[in-house]
Design a protein around this nucleic acid. Structure first.
Length: 419
RNA sequence: GCCGGGGUGGGGUAGUGGCAUCCUUGGGGACUGUGGAUCCCUUGACCCGGGUUCAAUUCCCGGUCCCGGCCCCA
């Protein structure tokens, strides 16, 4: 037997119904915010991703040579492709450009709960601005996506890497040392950072300031403990706009230093605490990528949501209600009624109802059982007596009540009872 | 990449150094149109590869996959 590759999944009809529901809710949120969908290739020149990200992403990429000996990679994320698309073909569009995408991504990682080698993201990029209101718009959309999907318990943390980045760059001249310091800050590895400061005889005072800033987590008022700077002003304005958008419960967290290489300003994350180890359902921020791909310098803000994790988190909160798969199941009472049954199911389908009919030549009682297992809302029983009256028996599968209705009215009678 | 815990029909299980249990599901049949029932029949499993042994599903080793944790991320 051929096994499914490690870290991949098959999704059955019931699970897909749930996933599509979650995905559709988030698509609609993007649409409400004026974002338009784009689709980019599943694989790209691997250079696109190596330019953007550090070695850590490269190590977990699916890379291969195509038949023309070009080095390709399955996309580990979609932001880079969207920005490439923008630089290639959309750079003269009026700003801001609002784009969203949905797609599968691939990373060769060790699978565990909420982590897969093929996973699904929905994300958005707002290209052409770095104003506080831009960042607020993107965060508002992110929160709207998560809420619309039906997730209730989540934590939004917003930071600004400008605070720590400029401080470190200012105080430490050696670029590589500065990068190392930032990396350790990102990992919150204070011991290693302290050791490094000792080894390089860097000022202890700077170390204390760094840890103090990275420790700032809480409401917007936390910023009052910092001296005024471009970054703090940006965050204050951003939070003001968020409040006007009705989003009040965001936390400030200056310890977020995600994706140091290209994130330039605001960064944010959303966690679903119920998820445990893999609780981060979203990551995003503002960045300047287009230059890397040969375009004019343009600021963008974006995010990516892990659809799998959102679905898992909603499931952990409560069951996602899949809608019944069928509106009506047509049962002939006897073999000579089958032709009548096919006509009936065709009529139902043409009226837009989800209808099915017995194809297994089952008996009446087994058909009722089967209809029940399908989750059919109604059984339509067609027999000799009904046919004589140009009618059918309509059985409500939840209540068990049934009545005889005219065949011509069957679809409308069903719709009437479905509410 | 590292560290735990696991793999018995499609799903859920019992058990064992020699015959693998039960439930459920699937398929068929009986019951003259409502018995979403009941009864009968039937398909179907010890993750893979080595080793120990007269004999391995069971014990040992390796792999693989699943579950969870670290790292990182979605």
């Amino acid at each position: 037997m051929i096994q499914r590759p490690r870290g991949t999944r098959d999704f059955g009809p019931a699970e897909m119904a749930k996933r599509r529901k979650v995905e559709l809710a988030m698509r609609e949120a993007c649409s409400r915010f004026g974002f338009g969908e784009v689709v980019t290739p599943t694989f790209e020149h691997s250079e696109l991703f190596t330019l953007r990200s550090g070695q850590s992403i490269v190590d977990e990429m699916y890379v291969f040579k195509d038949k023309g000996d070009r080095e390709m990679a399955l996309r580990p994320e979609i932001t880079a492709s969207v920005i490439r698309f923008y630089v290639n073909e959309m750079s003269t569009h009026p700003k801001p450009l609002k784009l969203y995408y949905v797609g599968n991504c691939f990373r060769y990682e060790n699978p565990q709960s909420g982590r897969y080698r093929e996973f699904f993201q929905i994300g958005a990029e707002l290209i052409g601005s770095k104003n506080p209101e831009t960042d607020a718009e993107v965060i508002a959309l992110a929160v709207n996506c998560i809420r619309s999907a039906g997730l209730e318990n989540f934590v939004v943390r917003v930071g600004h890497i400008g605070v720590l980045k400029s401080l470190v760059r200012e105080q430490i001249e050696d670029e590589k040392a500065a990068a190392d310091v930032l990396r350790m800050i990102d990992k919150e590895d204070w011991d290693a950072l302290g050791d490094m400061f000792d080894a390089r005889v860097l000022p202890r005072k700077l170390f204390d300031r760094i840890t103090a800033i990275a420790d700032i987590k809480g409401g917007i008022e936390e910023l009052n403990n910092l001296e005024d700077s471009e970054a703090t002003r940006h965050l204050r304005e951003l939070f003001d706009v968020l409040r006007l958008y009705g989003i009040e419960d965001c936390q400030v967290d200056l310890g977020i230093v995600r994706g140091l290489d290209y994130y330039t300003g605001m960064v944010f994350e959303i966690d679903a605490p119920k998820l445990g180890a893999e609780k981060q359902v979203l990551g995003g921020g503002s960045y300047a990528l287009s230059e890397l791909f040969g375009g004019e310098p343009v600021f963008s803000t974006g995010f990516a949501i892990g659809i799998d994790r959102v679905a898992l988190a909603i499931d952990a909160e409560r069951k996602i209600e899949p809608k019944p798969a069928l509106d009506a199941y047509v049962i002939p009472t006897k073999d000579d009624m089958r032709k009548y049954a096919f006509g009936m199911v065709a009529r139902l389908r043409s009226q837009g109802l989800r209808a099915d009919v017995d194809l297994m030549r089952r008996t009446m009682s087994k058909n009722l059982k089967y209809a029940s297992s399908l989750g059919a809302r109604f059984a339509v029983i067609v027999g000799k007596e009904e046919m004589a009256k140009r009618s059918v028996t309509l059985r409500d599968m939840t209540s068990g009540k049934q009545e005889v209705v005219l065949a011509d009215n069957i679809a409308s009678e069903i719709c009437k009872r479905m509410g």
